[in-house]
Amino acid sequence: MKLELDRISKQYGNKIALDGISLELQEGIYGLLGANGAGKTTLMRIICGILNPTAGEVKLNGTNNIEMGEDYRDILGYLPQDFGYYPSFKAKEFMLYMASLKGLESNYAKMRTEELLQIVGLSEVANKKVGTFSGGMKQRLGIAQAVLNDPKVLILDEPTAGLDPKERIHFRKLISSFAEDKIIILSTHIVSDVEQIADQILILKKGNLLTQGTVMELTDRVRGKVWECVIDNSELEQFSNKYSIVNQHIQNNQMIIRVVGDDEPDIKNKKVVAPTLEDLYMYYFHENEGRM
């Protein structure tokens, strides 16, 4: 199975949201990283066929996704970043409604609904109205509906939004268990969501695909460019303006900062450390630091 993005561009008036993105995706988990406004949601909507690109096309095994119509949607699972529910529907009813929409046979739909509600930890509230659910519960229900039809292409836009740390760990396990023979694209601006489960990381910035590769390949690009430095508390503001600081904490009354950049920081007490994906993210998005 091959999902191709062929020179996808999207323009809203004078604003370019996506600028000629080309990608070829095979089975595996793809983590789409980017700051808010990078174009992640736009790209995902285009892949799902609910937003037309200004130029370019999405192809599955060589066929345009829009031309495929029902056949494409049949193998698609989608969790949008922001979506509502029918408050008067019970969780089970909502799942059965989505199952009908996805064309699942009635008995199979019931069985699958029970199974998935169990997996996402909602089986005890299956007969409760969705309107009474917390944000995290709604998000889990959203994940469950996305995989109802056992999709071959699963698009998850900010799937961990609203989930607590335990739920996020559970979610990562869940995605890993679904991943076999599927193309999963998972967009997030939370690096840890994809660091452990993504086979490939795609970094999107201002509508352009900056880079892609495995976590190892990408972190190698900033190897030797990440330092841990010890500074005085009073120097923090000065260094914050000068360097891209990934992290900071106080230890034994000393301020320890983690800096990423092409230039070695002009700090006496420093050492090169092994890079992480978060360092890479900051390397590319340091001007969006405030939004992290």
Binding site: Y78, P80, F83, G84, M98, L101
Partner: peptide
Amino acid sequence: YQTHMDSLILTAKYGKSKV
């Protein structure tokens, strides 16, 4: 549209037909 359920409906198999 207002509840953003359109995303889910229109990406489902019958989202542009039976529903």
